[in-house]
Design a protein around this nucleic acid. Structure first.
Lengths: 148, 148
DNA sequence: GCCAATTAATTCGAATTCGAGATAATTTAT
DNA sequence: ATAAATTATCTCGAATTCGAATTAATTGGC
């Protein structure tokens, strides 16, 4: 009975399913992260510094995909919580680096493994083969959409 | 070299890829919708009324997955734009129905086909078989995550 | 060396979303 | 029949995000 559907309708359906899946997953991940006192954006920024080291503030926005004004806002919050510090760049005085603090590192040491575990739980709906397939297909989709 | 990865890491990767794909797709779809003077939530609500008929305000929130206070906000906006009207339910005076207006219907007559076409373009990164696979896999993922 | 264009970060105001609490109507249980 | 619990909607304040405009610093072309 799904036979009569044309490709446009299939795409629309895929859009709906993708949106729903993302919403469900995002909600679970968010619950996990908020337990640790961070919101998803704060977590993403802190994780970037934790796993990839110091970053110019501008790069943070690029990698986490938020507007520059939002980056300022999130970095402010994390700085107030003492999870990171701003350090002016001596070579280029336009640039400010963000560095994770001891306290931030300690926090991530504690919550990152738990987070990874939680993600593992959330994605138990698919087996390894399926996850690999999904990654492949979603990458194709994502790249294509980005290029448009 | 991807061989050494364990399932937890694979899930984390899938999460990242899913997030990125959704971000790219969402951005494109949003561009399309904003061209027509609506934001994604307004579009979703109007589309619901357009394709599924009148809805109690509460149902709108359930189907579009927004909080009740957000529903009030969006319905207010659409009502101000004359795309829908509130109609008190005579059988249960707690309930208010939202009905799409002539003007709203005319708008959707014009933009819905274009929207579907735009989605078709955005998802050209995958062929029919791949879309069917994605739908299947994403449904599994989404349902599982929702049940947690 | 100097002006124009570019780049980094910030401030500001607007839009959107949420959750908690309020209000009103209905239903359930006693 | 009434009190208590539930349901639908709305109000309000807070959080988050964005885009446009601002400030400051650097770079490139002449």
């Amino acid at each position: 009975m799904d036979k009569e559907i044309n490709e446009e309708e299939l795409s629309l359906k895929l859009f709906v399913v993708l949106t729903r899946a993302m919403q469900s997953v995002k909600k679970r991940v968010e619950e996990d992260i908020r337990k640790h006192g961070l919101n998803p954006t704060e977590f993403a920024v802190l994780e970037l510094l934790y796993n990839k080291g110091d970053q110019p503030i501008q790069k943070i926005g690029d990698k986490v995909l938020i507007a520059s004004s939002s980056t300022t806002y999130v970095v402010d919050k994390l700085e107030k919580k003492n999870y990171l510090r701003r350090r002016p760049c001596p070579k280029d005085r336009r640039i400010t680096h963000a560095t994770i603090t001891e306290e931030g590192t300690a926090l991530m040491d504690e919550i990152f493994p738990k987070h990874q575990e939680a993600i593992g739980e959330i994605f138990k709906g698919a087996d390894i083969k399926e996850k690999e397939q999904l990654i492949l297909l979603l990458k194709k989709l994502g790249y294509y959409a980005q290029e448009l």
